[in-house]
Structures are given as structure tokens and as C-alpha cells.
Lab assay of single mutants.
Amino acid sequence: EETVVIALYDYQTNDPQELALRRNEEYCLLDSSEIHWWRVQDRNGHEGYVPSSYLVEKS
């Protein structure tokens, strides 16, 4: 079962390993094994790492 997370803030990045976030957008959580950086996928299928503190699990 996939976990959906919501971005609390915008996040901009130039790092190809990371993914930009848009506030209030939903993302699919792929990997939360790292404490500070979670791997997520956006609705267009793009994947990357984002700061975990910018996300909240959708209830």
C-alpha cells in the first residue's frame, strides 16, 4: 500500500538527485529509510529526494 504525503512548503532545487516540491501537492512516498531525506514521486512520475521535514503524511 502506497503512502501519500503532502508538501507543507515549496522546495526549489538544482540538484538532479532531488525533486522540487509545491506546497499542498501530493506525492507518493517511495523511501523513508533516511531520517532527513525521503524519496518521493510526483504525479508526473518524476522521482527525487526531498527534505522530510517539508512533508506530512496524508491522513
Rank of each mutant, 00 (worst) to 15 (best):
C28T: 13
V50C: 12
E34F: 10
R43F: 06
Y27K: 00
S53M: 07
G48T: 02
C28F: 14
N24T: 10
D15L: 14
W37I: 11
V4G: 05
L8Q: 08
E57Y: 09
V56F: 09
D42N: 07
P51Q: 03
L21N: 01
Q12C: 06
A20G: 15
E2G: 13
P51Y: 01
V4D: 07
N14P: 07
S52H: 04
E18K: 15
P51K: 04
E57N: 08
T3E: 12
V56E: 12
N44V: 06
N44F: 08
Y54P: 00
H46C: 11
Y9C: 09
R43V: 14
G48E: 00
Y11A: 02
P51I: 01
G45K: 09
R39Q: 11
R23T: 11
R23Y: 09
N14L: 09
P16N: 07
C28M: 13
P51N: 03
V40H: 02
S53T: 12
P16C: 14
S52I: 02
V56Y: 09
V50S: 07
Q12E: 14
A7E: 01
I35G: 14
K58P: 11
S59M: 12
Y49H: 09
W38Y: 08
Y11G: 01
W37E: 06
N44G: 14
R43C: 07
V56A: 14
D15A: 15
S52G: 07
H46W: 05
V5C: 11
A7Y: 01
V5K: 02
G45S: 05
V50Y: 00
N44P: 03
Q17E: 14
V56P: 02
S52D: 02
S33R: 10
E57A: 13
Y27S: 01
E2K: 15
H36N: 10
L19H: 01
E47H: 10
G48Q: 02
Y49E: 05
L30R: 07
S52F: 03
P51E: 02
P51T: 00
R43W: 08
N24R: 06
E25C: 13
E25I: 03
R22D: 11
P16M: 09
E18L: 06
L21F: 02
N44M: 12
Q17T: 11
A20D: 12
C28W: 13
I35D: 14
V4N: 08
P51S: 02
E2P: 04
Y9M: 14
S32R: 13
L55G: 00
D42A: 10
N14K: 12
T13I: 07
Q12G: 13
N44C: 11
E1A: 07
H46E: 13
R43H: 11
L29A: 03
E26G: 03
Q17I: 05
Q41L: 08
E26H: 06
I6A: 06
R23D: 01
